[in-house]
Design a protein around this nucleic acid. Structure first.
Lengths: 177, 177
DNA sequence: CCCATATTGTAAGTATACTGTCAATCGGCA
DNA sequence: TGCCGATTGACAGTATACTTACAATATGGG
């Protein structure tokens, strides 16, 4: 009697169903990202800031005088993408870009007064959005998911096109003007 | 002695650190999505298909003769976004769009021979990509994460701008030509 | 049967998120 | 010191992902 496991026969591939999409981690990550952005934008609609713009503001606040390349490493964005984000934040007068005196290539980033105020005021809305994303889960499950996700993102850091390099942010200290 | 919890004093907000970004679920979802796309594209580079295009191919294969609006509900994409995706798949000759006889507004979608072959051949690469995304976790943790994520996406379905409506796919049966 | 209302695909506009490429500039090494 | 390779910000090009708007078409109620 031919045992199924004896020799790897050129067996028929399984039929393709929607499960090939619905149960794939990649699909779930994409869906969850869509949902997260949607919730964020809704909660923060009064501030007209996207999640990406918020992250950039926080990073510039935390690292005043950082340049665009280092900023991209600190929040794990592509340098090209970040260029546009910075432009929009500048046109909304939330940040300033001033040329460095020591390196004529770089432009140093600072929050404006308006930027600091917006950042301070948006925090509670952001917090509400973050809570809402996980709300449907039981509290213990929220912790579990967050822990596993943190772990997975960290361990997969190098697989990303733009790995997070939080340490890079420190390099600009001591240089700047 | 003034108890901290007695009356909601106008207390100082906590200082803003990068943790306001790094520990936020929304940020982790975005990072994980970046990583997932990166791994998918890498594993499937031989096929020149994006994750979104792959999902569309599977759905059209599973629901031959579906129209664009119903397709968007089945894979939870925006209708506008899907228009461009369909265009690209058509220009690669992986799908066909033919006008319906009963409703002059709709265009019915079918895989071409080439599309069916690409879909069949890409499956193993897709599978490898999905495995790689979760690889860094222990097997038990992979199951936990996947279960929680599936649950969360499902429970948050309505929070998304384009909720998944898998049942919609059935409506086109019995109508079509 | 006719018209108000809804649906369908498409298009324009904005915002990520990448890939390249490029000129200006910088830094280290011969 | 002078040049070569690396870095920096900018730009062009592609692909999601959303918004609003619109014309063509369908449908149901009066």
């Amino acid at each position: 009697m031919p045992r199924r496991t004896s020799k790897p026969m050129p067996s028929k591939p399984p039929p393709i169903t929607m499960d090939a999409v619905y149960t794939a981690p990649g699909y779930l990550f994409r869906r969850m990202q869509q949902i997260a952005v949607s919730i964020f934008v809704e909660e923060c609609s009064a501030f007209d800031l996207t999640p990406v713009q918020y992250a950039a503001l926080v990073a510039i606040h935390t690292h005043p005088g950082i340049d665009a390349t280092r900023l991209s490493a600190v929040i794990a964005f592509d340098r090209s993408t970040l260029g546009n984000v910075i432009e929009r934040l500048e046109s909304k007068a939330l940040i300033e870009r001033k040329p460095s005196r020591e390196d004529k290539r770089v432009k140093l980033l600072h929050l404006t007064k308006a930027g600091a105020i917006v950042l301070r005021d948006i925090m509670s809305s952001v917090e509400r959005a973050q809570v809402r994303m996980l709300q449907p889960l039981k509290p213990a499950d929220r912790k579990t998911l967050l822990a596993l996700l943190t772990q997975l993102v960290d361990l997969n850091n190098e697989a990303s096109r733009v790995p997070l390099r939080a340490e890079d942010a420190l390099e600009h200290l001591g240089k700047s003007n």
